[in-house]
Design a protein around this nucleic acid. Structure first.
Lengths: 106, 106
DNA sequence: TGTTTGCGAAACCAACTGGTTGCACATACA
DNA sequence: TGTATGTGCAACCAGTTGGTTTCGCAAACA
C-alpha cells in the first residue's frame, strides 16, 4: 500500500521508535524491550516506517539494525514551512503593535 | 475521545482543509465545495480538528465559520525541532568535509 | 548435528476510521 | 406563518489499524 509519512508519525508508538533509533540503530528485539508490546508489533511498526522510507535496515548476521533516515522528516518540515511563515508574520505584527505602544508611552 | 494533533494532520483531506481555512475562515458548505465529498464528511473532519483545537468556530446567524489556530501547529514544529538540529548538524559536518577537501586541493 | 535465537510473514481479531444516509433544529426569508 | 437553508448528530457500513499468536527460516552455537 502507498504509505504516507504523516500517517507514519501519527502513531505515538512509532514516534517513540523514531526517537529511540534517532540516537543509534537498533534491532527489533532491543526496540521492543522499551515498550510493553511484542516484538512482532514493533516489527509491524518498523514495516510501516520502512515503507515510507523513514527507516532503513542493515543486516549483521541474524540481527537486523534499523536506523532513522533523518532527512525524510524534512518533508514534514517543508509542509510546516508555509504555516511557520504565517505565524512568524503574525508574531512580528504583534511585536510592532507592542513597539508602537511603547513609543506612545515616551 | 482524546485527540492528537499528529493524528489530525495524518489525513490528507484534513490537511487540505487546513490549507483552505489558513487563508480565510470558511463555512462547512463552502469547504465541502472544494472536495468531492459530502458536507457531513467535512463536518466530521472539522470535529476532529476542533477536538485537538486546531480549528475554532465563529457563528454568524445560521452559518458557522471555521478558522485555523495557526499556533497549534507549533506543536508539530516543536516535535521536529530536535530532529532539525540533528540534520542541520549533519549538514554542517558534510560542509566541513567539503571544505577540507577544497583546502587539500589548494 | 541438534538446539537456541532473531527475525519476517501470515492469520486472526477487536477497535477505529472515513464515508454515507437520514434526521432534528435553528435561522433566514416569502 | 410556512418554506428553504445551514448546520450538528446518530446510525450504519466497509476498509484499515494495531495488536496477538503461530509459523517457517536462517544464523549462531553446543
Amino acid at each position: 500500500m502507498r504509505r504516507d509519512i504523516f500517517q507514519a508519525i501519527a502513531d505515538p508508538t512509532r514516534r517513540a521508535i523514531i526517537a529511540l533509533i534517532a540516537v543509534q540503530a537498533m534491532t527489533p528485539n532491543t526496540i521492543a524491550e522499551h515498550f510493553q508490546t511484542s516484538r512482532q508489533a514493533v516489527s509491524k511498526h518498523l514495516r510501516v516506517l520502512t515503507e515510507c522510507e523513514l527507516v532503513t535496515q542493515q543486516q549483521h548476521g541474524r540481527e537486523i539494525y534499523y536506523s532513522l533516515q533523518l532527512e525524510r522528516l524534512q518533508e514534514v518540515d517543508h509542509w510546516l514551512s508555509d504555516y511557520r511563515k504565517l505565524w512568524e508574520t503574525r508574531f512580528n505584527q504583534l511585536d510592532q503593535v507592542l513597539s508602537t505602544l511603547k513609543n506612545q508611552k515616551k
